Simulated scan of single mutants.
Amino acid sequence: MATDSDFVLYHYTPSKVAAIIFIVLFALMTIVYAVQSIYAARKASRILRLNPFEQVDDKTDVFRDDYYKKFKISSTACVFIPLFVGFIMEIVGYVGRALSSSDPTKITPYIIQSLLLLVAPALIAATIYMVFGRLLHVMRCQSLMLISARFGTTFFVVGDVFSFFLQAAGGGLMSKKGSTKTGSNLITAGLIVQIVFFGFFIINEIRFSVSVRRKCIFYGDISRKWFIVNASLLLSSVLILLRSIVRVVEFIQGFDGFIISHEYFIYVFDAVPMLLVIIAFCVGSFYGNIFDVIAECQTLTTTDSA
């Protein structure tokens, strides 16, 4: 199934059934989490609004407590935009694989599935980094960042964006004749950057989990919802890390390698881990989410200051 490019698109005929199954599963879980997030954000906003100790400027509707000023519920909701865009890309990527099953020689569906499934985790990672940054901030645990708290979240997000553009550029070059090797090298470099930053981030999450009891001034007063949030982020990080390691091995092996030549790898080591990520967010949201933690910490702060 060769094309006018210098590499074979598929070493097999993509399974339409498998692609459709994951389209449905990703779409369903994304909708579920969207509904959960909207409900949680509205509930947290209502709690803060009804808090009798809340210090709010009636004219600007902004918290006078500068510590929380930048973490209003609306601004926190925005950090989930990359996550939802990422999972929409996952859905469209598997639509591309479903289309490829009808004609594996067509380049457009191949590019869609190859590029979107490759870079989507980088967007999801951006949300993970930003939610963790807010978790540390509202619990006043910035000192647990391995780098300066002022630049902690920015450090991880910038690294993630750099990884995203390397992979996106590599994916674009792979579709051009004569540039496939360069594209593959860029993708490999982007994945390695993602692995390095995720590894560093996971170490930071573990450090936070171990030290939070000693560092968090709210530890004895708030529920364990912060733990659910962190556990969801940690599990998601590990899943994306493992997925990225397999993809690195895939590109190192080359276009005739064992991994790229067998379709089950894309489902077992990419589709399933990414599906488990959104499931982890959904399950975790039933027991605790970042909106609940913000509401709890903000209520405690304003109560203590009253």
Results as ranks from 00 to 15, higher is better:
residue 55 Q to W: 04
residue 186 L to P: 10
residue 138 V to F: 13
residue 7 F to W: 06
residue 53 F to D: 10
residue 149 A to E: 15
residue 304 D to W: 03
residue 66 D to P: 02
residue 246 V to C: 07
residue 189 A to N: 05
residue 121 P to Q: 09
residue 15 S to V: 15
residue 286 F to A: 14
residue 293 V to D: 06
residue 187 I to Q: 07
residue 50 L to H: 04
residue 88 I to C: 08
residue 203 I to H: 09
residue 256 D to R: 11
residue 150 R to N: 13
residue 32 V to S: 09
residue 179 S to K: 09
residue 155 F to M: 12
residue 81 I to G: 14
residue 246 V to N: 10
residue 304 D to G: 07
residue 188 T to V: 06
residue 187 I to N: 07
residue 78 C to V: 08
residue 31 I to Y: 09
residue 109 P to R: 01
residue 212 V to K: 01
residue 139 M to R: 15
residue 27 A to G: 15
residue 20 I to L: 09
residue 238 V to P: 02
residue 289 N to Q: 13
residue 47 I to N: 01
residue 95 V to G: 00
residue 187 I to E: 10
residue 16 K to Y: 06
residue 144 L to I: 03
residue 88 I to T: 06
residue 60 T to S: 13
residue 167 Q to A: 15
residue 105 T to K: 00
residue 257 G to Q: 08
residue 147 I to Y: 02
residue 237 S to H: 05
residue 127 T to I: 05
residue 231 A to R: 13
residue 244 S to T: 08
residue 124 I to A: 05
residue 145 M to H: 10
residue 253 Q to A: 15
residue 217 I to K: 13
residue 298 Q to K: 13
residue 39 Y to T: 15
residue 101 S to Y: 03
residue 106 K to H: 03
residue 20 I to S: 07
residue 132 F to L: 11
residue 143 S to I: 11
residue 64 R to W: 04
residue 134 R to P: 09
residue 176 K to H: 11
residue 268 V to H: 15
residue 280 A to L: 09
residue 113 Q to T: 05
residue 142 Q to E: 13
residue 193 V to G: 04
residue 115 L to P: 02
residue 75 S to T: 12
residue 241 L to W: 12
residue 172 G to R: 12
residue 53 F to W: 09
residue 122 A to R: 00
residue 147 I to Q: 00
residue 106 K to Y: 02
residue 219 Y to D: 14
residue 133 G to V: 01
residue 86 G to L: 01
residue 184 S to H: 03
residue 7 F to A: 02
residue 18 A to C: 06
residue 218 F to I: 02
residue 65 D to W: 04
residue 262 H to K: 15
residue 49 R to H: 12
residue 158 V to S: 07
residue 101 S to Q: 04
